[in-house]
Design a binder for these strands. Structure first.
Lengths: 411, 411
DNA sequence: GTGCACTTTCAAAACGATTAAATCTGCAGA
DNA sequence: TCTGCAGATTTAATCGTTTTGAAAGTGCAC
């Protein structure tokens, strides 16, 4: 039995060898130009060989043949045959290995161009273990902040030969978990979790699979997770001081949803800034919104019933501020004469609101850059003990037209 | 020589056979519960077996072993060993093949859950030829229309087990070509080209590689390219009629960039609608803009120097209209009293401009749905002669607050 | 006990690349 | 003339799946 198995094996091995020989041996003494032409014809002529006398390989060859005739996708073998080298040499050439001589390299590139060949990423990933894929998970792709962030991130990634997988969690932990799962299936080399503070449910999966992570604003005690610290404090202090300088003292804050760490940080930084400016904080002037435009409209509506109303509002993000702008307009309040409004993010749109929004700028480009660098660092030096790093992205006030001195006469 | 080669082969085949035996044979007579436990231990115990007496397999086994110990990623073999079946059975179970008995299927799923295993997409793609990836190329991801489109598309795709690759061309043919190249490398099963009319440079590559395409608004004489026809006509007629009913006759049109087919279609539909309403078209009231907010501001500026100014403006997209809103505000014109403005797209934001924008709605959800169905149809029935289809997405007017009767007194 | 359909499971080839190991090719030195 | 040593090239194993064709059970009639 084991004897017969051995013999069967021998036969199979032989067949395999024979199949591997399907590319024509060719005569190596032909001049260069000519040899190219002849081997090209040869490569395309493979289907013609399918009527060979060996029965067992028919199915293989014919399948191969049919694929070649429909034949849109040249593979590394096609290139090798055309360039008359082994597939290893082709692979080396493509990957810029110094082990390939000038002469062959030229021939291989010529063949690659002629066939318009490019390697199959899946095959590459499978054997090399590197997918050159990064995932980026954002909170809500319809908030303009995130497309702008994605755009920057994509640009940088592509420039470095990476591809990105985008998902938006819509603040739903279940969706988030599925995003992560899908990214793991695709073997991403790292994930930028740009949800600004609801990441807990995903961390387990990623950490467990040993996938690098970068988090905005949430530190994780894992060597695989880098962190981007966001210094809202600077910008928020500037904002408060700006209002104080203009003569405001009744300053409200429309916060983000408390389930986001970032929202809480922003709110706390506001409180600190107010304290530093020696201004009182009215409890009913701090309202939790949801970082959406509608939320801003609704949030500002809460002030309507108040006896003592704020003369200025700082918002946890720009969308909320735009909502306030709208709510004020509907209520007949003029901005900035009757009400000053400050946003946070400085989305592209902020420049074009009516009036143009004074806001705290959080650079998407900086953030994207930090996120990419963090991931790349970890992905490319998996054993570097210092691969985990912290990045700092700062904020600053951008003064536009939505802030002015309060009209003392009126309130 | 060929004799010795044969012998060498035989030996190698044997070695291979031996290696394949690395998972323990186990005794098949154990009761179910117990067997699970014992095989679990067995699977994890593989590293212990590395001190075997066969020298040639050392490197293989030990590498395998070290991977197992660092072992974050269980593969199909791990599952098979744990469930005490062959990897083929595991594969069948996962893919719901009817050839697996109830009893085994249960055992396999149990193992899968226990290991938190999921298949490697790259390996799957490689062998099955199906990547379950669709590409979507948009014009400019920072135009809110597109994130909304992407969001819908992604939702539908994920619900059907597909993943998406997003790229924005930024109206640059070179960037576009690179996007397509990257998508081809990842072996996408189809590409939705949502650039609305500059697709020519990419078609070649995709058609040549036999990749299904769906185009918005541009017919291609290829059986692999489905088309989504956009009926702007309905919405634009409604818009013109709406303005006419309000009493407008001096209607301008801020067009999109002429390099986009869609922009030209929209403009032509406007002309047709004007003719149908028996209104004169002033040449200087039709201006080519670039579909951006800034472009809208600039475009509207052209009217300032005119002796005879329009009382209403229809814009080729919402961003342009928002630009007009801003330009009018800066100029001191009140919307809608002094100027009526109509956009096109109905991006989420349109509801929240000041005043809320009257606009022609082009449903992202419908568009995304059509695009996905078109691709799926083609990807899953590669030989169906009717796989190429045409979809129609219509438009309709949404009246909000940016349109009103012209103040006759003033102009 | 044998033979024959019919299930069920298994083993091995294949997908398209990378890469370690083996082989080949010149050429210098004994 | 032969050996040894680089450097250039090729060979073959490998990644983790799917998918066949073959093997092994199973049940039943003869």
């Amino acid at each position: 039995m084991s004897q017969s198995a051995q013999i069967r094996r021998g036969l199979q091995a032989l067949r395999q060898k024979f199949r591997a020989r399907y590319r024509s041996p060719g005569t190596s003494s032909q001049p260069d130009l000519h040899s190219k032409k002849s081997s090209y014809i040869c490569a395309n002529a493979i289907p013609l060989h399918s009527h060979q006398n060996c029965i067992e390989q028919d199915s293989y060859v014919s399948r191969k043949a049919s694929r070649k005739t429909a034949g849109k996708t040249p593979d590394i073998r096609t290139v090798a045959a055309l360039a008359k080298v082994s597939i290893a040499t082709v692979s080396r050439t493509i990957n810029g290995s110094p082990l390939v001589s000038e002469r062959l390299s030229k021939r291989v590139w010529q063949a690659i161009r002629q066939l318009n060949y490019f390697p199959n990423t899946h095959a590459r990933t499978l054997v090399s273990g590197r997918s050159r894929l990064f995932g980026i998970i954002v909170e809500n792709i319809t908030n303009p902040f995130f497309p702008e962030l994605i755009q920057s991130f994509e640009e940088i990634a592509v420039a470095h030969g990476y591809e990105i997988l985008v998902s938006s969690s819509n603040s739903d932990p279940i969706v988030l978990t599925q995003c992560v799962r899908r990214m793991l299936e695709r073997k991403v080399e790292g994930v930028a979790v740009m949800t600004f503070g609801e990441e807990e449910p995903v961390l387990d999966q990623l950490v467990h699979r040993n996938v690098p992570i970068v988090l905005a604003e949430f530190k994780l005690d894992d060597p695989k997770a880098s962190t981007i610290l966001l210094d809202y404090s600077t910008g928020i202090h500037e904002a408060v001081n700006h209002l104080v300088t203009l003569g405001h003292s009744k300053i409200a804050f429309l916060a983000g949803p408390h389930k986001l760490h970032s929202a809480i940080t922003r709110e706390n930084d506001f409180r600190t800034a107010m304290k530093a400016a020696r201004l009182p904080i009215q409890k009913e002037w701090i309202i939790e919104c949801d970082h959406t435009l509608k939320g801003g409209v609704a949030g500002f509506g809460n002030f309507r019933s108040l006896a003592k109303r704020p003369s200025a509002v700082i918002c946890s993000n720009d969308m909320t501020a735009i909502g306030v702008l709208r709510a004020a307009y509907l209520e007949g309040l003029r901005v900035p004469q009757d009400l000053s409004v400050i946003g946070l993010d400085d989305i592209d749109f902020a420049e074009f609101t009516l009036p143009a929004l004074t806001t705290i700028c959080l650079s998407r480009a900086d953030l994207a850059h930090a996120a990419f660098e963090a991931l790349r660092q970890q992905a490319e030096n998996p054993n570097d003990p210092n691969r985990k790093r912290e990045f700092l992205v700062s904020t600053r006030l951008v003064v536009r037209a939505s802030t002015a001195a309060p009209s003392t006469s009126k309130r």
